[in-house]
């Protein structure tokens, strides 16, 4: 039996971990929204600035879940945490930026091009954590609990003991990100089923 033992919800206005808002966007800030969170939470990973928005969102979500649940990083061998991510618009946001880099007479930007694949965020999280486990990035029309449940089912049979799952939809200022960690730990978890996943995804934390 699988349980969701930690989750992070991030949209245009707030960032919440395990249902509690930890950061709210300051619209007057000179910093981008993701950079605001990075600074507030005192992360130190200079590579963050080089990442595209998809990777920045994945970095923040994964790190915040790890902080709230120390077992995520500590209790599994380096290849037993799978990553199962999906979204609906692939890397389109970065694709458009790369396209603009070579409009007119300018040269295409290699550092933008390497982010024009949705699964790069999986690589960034794997590099940071030294995770050698299974990876999947799928494109689906909408957030679909059934996809994660089915895929968790088949990665478990392949030897993965836990999984970081994610829905990372970022396009032209729209942010709809949900990361959740799944393991077989009953004590701290919410049972993994379609209903619970949908309700965690749709839950709007109260803004005080």
């Amino acid at each position: 039996m699988n349980f969701v033992t930690g989750y992070c919800r991030l949209n245009e206005d707030f960032c919440a971990v395990n249902g509690e808002v930890i950061s709210r966007r300051d619209v007057d800030s000179e910093d981008s929204w993701f950079k605001q969170i990075y600074k507030e939470q005192e992360f130190v990973y200079p590579k963050f600035y080089k990442m595209d928005l998809l990777s920045q969102a994945g970095f923040l979500g994964a790190e915040l879940i790890k902080r709230a649940n120390l077992r995520v990083a500590g209790s599994y061998p380096d290849d037993e945490i799978a990553m199962i991510f999906a979204n609906s618009s692939s890397s389109t946001d970065t694709d458009m930026r790369f396209l603009r880099s070579y409009e007119g007479n300018s040269s295409p930007s290699p550092s933008l091009f390497v982010y024009t694949l949705p699964n790069i965020v999986l690589g960034e999280i794997a590099i940071l954590n030294k995770w050698y486990g299974e990876n999947m990035f799928a494109i689906l029309p909408n957030f679909e609990p059934g996809f994660y449940i089915n895929y968790l089912n088949i990665t478990k049979s392949g030897g993965s003991k836990a999984a970081l799952c994610g829905w990372l939809e970022i396009l032209e200022g729209k942010v709809d990100v949900f990361l959740f960690f799944v393991e077989e730990n009953e004590e701290t978890g919410t049972p993994l089923n379609a209903e619970n996943l949908a309700s965690l995804f749709n839950h709007k934390p109260s803004i005080n």
Partner: peptide, 13 residues
């Protein structure tokens, strides 16, 4: 290595 390629773009730009 990607930064090195980006420096090539910089030189041109």
């Amino acid at each position: 290595s990607i930064d090195a390629l980006e420096l090539i773009v910089l030189l041109e730009k």
